[in-house]
Design a protein around this nucleic acid. Structure first.
Length: 590
RNA sequence: GCGCUCGUAGCUCAGUUGGAUAGAGUGUUUGACUACGAAUCAAAAGGUCGCAGGUUCGAAUCCUGCCGGGCGCACCA
């Protein structure tokens, strides 16, 4: 079940009223509803019907009149034709044409150009930012790697998708709270301690760090297949951790520190940070209260010795709260965490960015929170994404079939460095830029496809820098910067330029794409879908590169040159802003 | 078995609340660096939108069934 943020209405309301950006849909909605004032068709309905035509020749915006015909009891083409005669296109539209049942609007270039480019120059890096959130808090739970296990490419999606949502919501006037819900509790630590005591040593762990911990963890599983008493022992060690046994706690803390240091290296490379690192262990002392509350509200039942919340009424399997031995499960911890976060942050939305495999789990405990009587259960949203596999096989820590994220990132950086040596050997700060571009390629690759799709990891694809990739966007940005640098263009506000100088199709196409930026950002937020921004930036870069090849910017005609520089500057600004939202650097040279 | 999810060009994917002739990238073939960066651009070729019904003025999109892939379904997270 895909939950949706209730911003559909918010979106429309804000675009209709608060939006300070040029909004042609609003203008058309008002024009058309003005003409239809006698009917019960209002501006909001028209607004919702407007769409972008499939190709440029038809126009820039279209109103299909099929739906209107039901209300007006007239043939759609007739409605379109009548509207056409009654609407005065000036000053925003160059012409209004009909094509069958469609009423097509062609934008007048000058108001568009003046408005969009002027606003981008004026706002700079805050262009597109809005106050839709009005300071409401959105808690975003993402990344959440397991302690003592390697940080591999499977963790990339959650980490970067969560980070983008964090950025977007801040950009739109919400206050994002980023939480890294570390997997730092549970029987796997019992297993690890057992393995450590049997086959490990302090020196080896200090030497091998996570690799050594992983080796021990894997060994535990292979040995436990033959010897089930190991599982007993592991449970016992975990019980000791829970009961505060000194030796057990000491080891647990040590393993956790080792892991956090390694994770931090990866987060530093990615440029990602969190507001809270409260992992599962943090909620340990908050579980009892949840269990008591569930009992008090008569939601808890006994079943095969375990305590459950029955969800049969809702077509779901029961939600396990306590095991036979009385210890808690992950749903219990998630509920405790949600209660704590609600109390602590007063969020208006809580997002959980995890794999799709956990969908049922989230549906179950969301329902339990609802049954506990909390109306904010509706504000809990699972943001799922597809699985990463390796050549069609599952990633597996136990069998070692994983690609470490750090290896991927350093390889990408290394490859970038080689390309720079080959193409641009005099580039200053090569190392930094190689990191920006290499990491950008990996991050963009993880964000660019619809998050629900499963992906097969391939080195070849991850290290491809041609076509629709992060480096393509960065290259386009660097190119734009290069022109501006040569012209010594500062992008001062209030600069005068002549919009009619940008009348070529290529220039106009770029401006029209620039215009779409704010609404694409909002779409990415309402759908929790970073790929919408990726897609948009690719479109923008493609349009700009076409313009780049069509139109020489640095030309003798001062007015023409200045107008084109303004356009280049605007593209540069939005590419940088967009990449920034994606968590990707936009170097000025590469 | 039940549930969730995906199936669009050789490959990877877009396709806006159902709307006009289904679009990119990559790969293949070809062209463009004495023009602001060739990590670029242009052109050609490439599709029974898994299959079959249904709803609708209109379906890649919604509904039903089937086929195929992935995932989940009691003490792991």
């Amino acid at each position: 079940m895909r939950c949706h943020l209730n911003v559909k209405s918010l979106k429309r309301e804000n675009l209709m009223q608060k939006n300070s950006y040029l909004d042609y849909k609003r203008i058309i909605a008002q024009l058309v509803s003005g003409v239809l004032a006698e009917t019960n068709i209002d501006a909001e309905m028209i607004y919702g019907l407007l769409e972008y035509p499939p190709n440029q020749e038809l126009g820039d915006l279209a109103l299909p009149c099929f739906q209107l015909s039901k209300v007006l009891k007239k043939a759609p083409p007739l409605i379109a034709a009548q509207l056409q005669t009654q609407i005065d296109p000036a000053p925003y539209f160059a012409e209004v044409q009909t094509a069958g049942a469609y009423l097509n609007f062609r934008l007048a270039p000058e108001p568009l150009i003046t408005n969009v480019l002027g606003k981008i120059l004026e706002c700079g890096s805050s262009y597109g930012a809005q106050n839709l959130g009005d300071g409401e808090k959105i808690v975003i739970d993402y990344s959440a790697p397991n302690i003592a296990k390697p940080f591999h490419v499977g963790h990339l999606s959650s980490t970067v998708i969560g980070n983008v949502l964090y950025n977007i919501f801040n950009f739109l006037g919400f206050i994002s709270v980023g939480i890294n819900y570390l997997g730092d509790w549970g029987t796997q630590f019992g297993k690890l301690i057992t393995a450590y005591k049997k086959w490990g040593s302090e020196a080896e762990v200090k030497q091998g760090l996570i690799k050594e911990l992983t080796r021990l963890y894997v060994k535990f599983h292979t040995e436990a297949e033959a010897d089930p008493t190991l599982d007993e022992e592991a449970r016992e060690w975990f019980r000791k951790i829970e009961n505060g046994d000194e030796e057990a706690l000491k080891l647990w803390k040590w393993f956790k520190e080792i892991s956090l240091e390694e994770f931090q290296r990866v987060y530093d490379i990615l440029g990602i940070s969190f507001d809270s690192m409260a992992g599962e262990s943090f909620y340990n002392d908050k579980i009892k209260a949840v269990v008591d509350e569930l009992k008090e509200k008569n939601l808890l039942e006994e079943s095969d010795g375990a305590s459950i919340v029955d969800l049969e009424l809702y077509g779901m399997p029961p939600c396990l709260i306590l095991k036979k031995d009385g210890s808690s499960l992950y749903a219990t911890r998630d509920i405790a965490a949600a209660l704590y976060r609600k109390k602590t942050y007063q969020f208006s939305k809580a997002l959980y960015v995890t794999g799709m495999a956990q969908s049922l789990h989230f549906q179950q405990w969301f329902k339990v929170v609802e049954l506990m009587g909390y109306d904010w259960a509706k504000d809990l949203v699972h943001v799922p994404f597809g699985l990463v596999n390796l050549k069609g096989e599952k990633l597996s820590t136990r069998t070692g079939r994983v690609v470490l994220l750090e290896d991927l990132l350093t390889t990408a950086i290394q490859k970038t460095l080689e390309i720079i040596e080959e193409k641009n050997p005099d580039l200053p700060q090569k190392a930094q830029i190689a990191q920006d571009v290499g990491v950008g390629a990996v991050v963009f690759g993880a964000l660019s496809v619809n998050r629900i799709k499963d992906v097969t990891f391939s080195w070849e694809e991850a290290l491809n820098f041609d076509g629709e990739t992060g480096p393509y966007l960065q290259y386009t940005h660097a190119r734009a910067c290069s022109i501006l640098r040569k012209a010594d263009f500062q992008g001062e506000t209030g600069i005068n330029f002549e919009p009619e100088k940008l009348n070529e199709p290529a220039a106009l196409k770029v401006v029209k794409t620039l215009y779409l930026f704010p609404e694409r950002i909002i779409a990415a937020a309402t759908e929790y879908e970073p790929s919408i921004i990726c897609r948009y930036l690719i479109d923008l870069a493609q349009d700009f590169n076409w313009f780049y090849h069509e139109c020489q910017v640095l030309v003798a005609d001062q007015d023409l040159s200045r107008a084109r520089l303004v356009l280049v500057s605007a593209v540069k600004t939005l590419l940088a802003t967009g990449l920034g939202l994606l968590g990707i650097k936009a170097p000025e040279q590469m």
